[in-house]
Computed example of a mutant assay.
Amino acid sequence: MNIKQLEYFIAIAEEHQITAAAKRLHISQPPLSYELAKLEKELGCQLAVRGPRSVSLTEAGKVLYERALRIVALTQATEREVASVATGAGGSISLGVDPSCSGLMPADRLVDLHRRFPNVEFEVHEGPTPSILDLLDGGIVDIGVVRTPFKSDGLRCRFAETEPLVAVMPPALEVGEEASCTLEDLSGLPLIVSRRLVAELGKAFEVMGGDLRMTTVVDDPRTAALWARESMGCALVPRSLIRVTDTGDQFIKTLECRELESRAAVIWKAQHTPSDLYRTVIALLGDLS
């Protein structure tokens, strides 16, 4: 099994067709079919089921697909870093960012870094905090920007200030005071929340004894805010996210609930000695304020 075979397999898994995958890879179909059969023979199991119009992955194929994504990403990151160091190009940095922290990313400082060091390459992976932690552990990202709660064992962390959630309310669903609201105010309202909030919000409503109606659960809190703009419900998002999200004419009210407050954090592996470039990026990220 080699990197090229994994890249071929990823294309097949994502295109769901040998023909479409071959077109994406700029090769003909027979060599691609041959490499898939060769890979299955080497691993001793069927990875994909060929249908008349599509290809679907077996359970073994799904496992290989997830691992292949990581292996290829790590290989590409390693190639870039080694090449940039060897040529004196300045290096490369891979960041993992939880979308809930988008409003705290100091874009102006990173832009300044790019201007001062134009040969530094950036790669950004976006995903929920658990995914970013996995990418950091696997060496695919160098620095993470995540949100509590998360396990910090083996990590160095620089935390931002605690911030509350805000409720993005369509006019028809407005409740609470002029600039704030409580869980009691939200009882019975259709709520749009990110997946990371589901458990904690459930606990808070259970303690309060209110009527929790999570009508929509999303991975990206920016989606929650945008859907609230379309009057699909009341969205609960970190306050800083409002800076980078167009919420239209919706009401924005601070949720008075300390149990649901959180902090963003810049993280990197404790055992990893940051290079000068890493330290520069960490310093520029600062306290995410």
Rank of each mutant, 00 (worst) to 15 (best):
T19A: 13
V49E: 13
P30W: 00
S28Q: 12
V49T: 14
Y34L: 07
A20N: 09
E66A: 15
A22E: 07
A21M: 05
P31Y: 09
A60L: 08
V55I: 12
K62H: 12
G61P: 01
L39C: 08
L57Q: 10
E35T: 11
R50H: 04
E42W: 08
I27D: 11
L69C: 05
E15L: 03
S54T: 14
V49C: 10
T58E: 05
G44H: 00
E14V: 02
T58A: 14
Q29S: 09
L36I: 10
E40F: 05
I18E: 11
K38G: 02
L36W: 09
E59T: 07
G51F: 01
L57E: 03
A48N: 10
A21F: 08
L25E: 08
R67K: 15
E35S: 15
A22G: 02
S28N: 15
Q29R: 13
G51I: 08
I12K: 02
I27F: 06
K23P: 03
S56G: 10
T58C: 12
A37E: 15
L36V: 08
A13E: 03
C45D: 01
I12S: 00
V55G: 05
T58N: 10
K23G: 09
R24A: 12
T58F: 12
Q17G: 15
V63L: 09
T58W: 06
K23C: 01
A20W: 01
E42D: 15
V55S: 00
Q46R: 15
R67L: 11
I18G: 00
A48H: 12
I12F: 07
E59S: 14
T19C: 07
K62D: 01
S28V: 06
A37G: 14
G44I: 00
T58D: 05
R53P: 08
V49N: 15
T58V: 07
E15M: 02
S56C: 11
A37W: 08
A68I: 01
A13Y: 01
L69G: 03
K41W: 07
S28P: 14
A60P: 05
K38M: 08
A22D: 08
S54W: 11
E66C: 06
G51R: 09
E35D: 12
Y34I: 10
A68D: 01
P52I: 06
S33P: 08
L36T: 10
G44E: 05
T19H: 12
G61E: 04
L25S: 07
A68C: 00
C45N: 04
S56M: 07
H26W: 09
V55A: 06
L57Y: 11
I27K: 11
K38T: 04
A20M: 03
A20Y: 08
K38H: 07
Y34G: 03
V63D: 11
S28M: 04
P30S: 00
S54V: 10
P30D: 06
K41G: 10
L32N: 02
G61C: 02
L36A: 06
L32Q: 10
T19V: 12
L57D: 12
G61A: 06
